[in-house]
């Protein structure tokens, strides 16, 4: 994977499943179409002559154009965003990273984990992937690893639970 400047050196990042990109692209496609349809309503009204006085042409054309540009931009960015998601298991802690422009790397010591969630939505189930979330005593700990293959998610959950138990340290 592409090494970002914020990456710590000497770490082997595990990448998420390529299927996750497809899930995200599908979600992006559906979302973009819905937004585009909604944003095109003034334009359609104007073109069909149903209501040709209200939306000035700037808004009628500008709104869908802006939505289209944002959608395309997000679509172009999506593969890189998905590629930027990574996690690394170390002896004492788990590292999770994400983000292309706004990068974030989080370290969660195993002994701090209170519980581990594995969640699967309908779309994710169809592609055989899952989302894993770590919880510590702080609700601000937002350690989310999406797009794990199901068996990898199960393995990681068991592994994290076992390591958390071995290193459990109250609060």
């Amino acid at each position: 994977m592409r090494r970002e400047p914020i990456d710590p050196s000497g770490l082997e990042w595990s990448r998420v499943s390529p299927k996750y990109l497809r899930v995200r692209l599908l979600g992006w496609l559906i979302g973009s179409v819905v937004w585009l349809v909604l944003a095109s309503v003034p334009l359609v009204l104007r073109l069909t002559g149903l209501w040709d006085s209200f939306p000035p042409p700037v808004i009628a054309w500008g709104l869908p154009a802006v939505v289209l540009v944002i959608a395309v931009w997000r679509g172009v960015l999506l593969p890189r965003q998905v590629a930027s998601i990574g996690y690394a298991e170390r002896d004492d802690d788990l590292l999770v990273r994400q983000g292309v422009f706004f990068q974030r790397t989080m370290v969660v010591p195993y002994g701090r984990m209170q519980y581990v969630d594995v969640a699967v939505g309908p779309l994710e189930r169809a592609f055989g992937i899952c989302t894993l979330k770590l919880h510590t005593a702080s609700p601000a700990t937002n350690a989310l690893i999406p797009g794990l293959p199901s068996e990898e998610g199960t393995r990681l959950r068991e592994q994290l639970s076992a390591r958390g138990e071995a290193r459990l340290a109250g609060l």
């Binding site: 914020i6 706004f102 990068q103 974030r104 790397t105 010591p109 510590t136 702080s138």
Partner: peptide, 8 residues
């Protein structure tokens, strides 16, 4: 608890 490093 945990620690994150962020950069824009």
């Amino acid at each position: 608890q945990s620690l994150s490093i962020e950069q824009g």
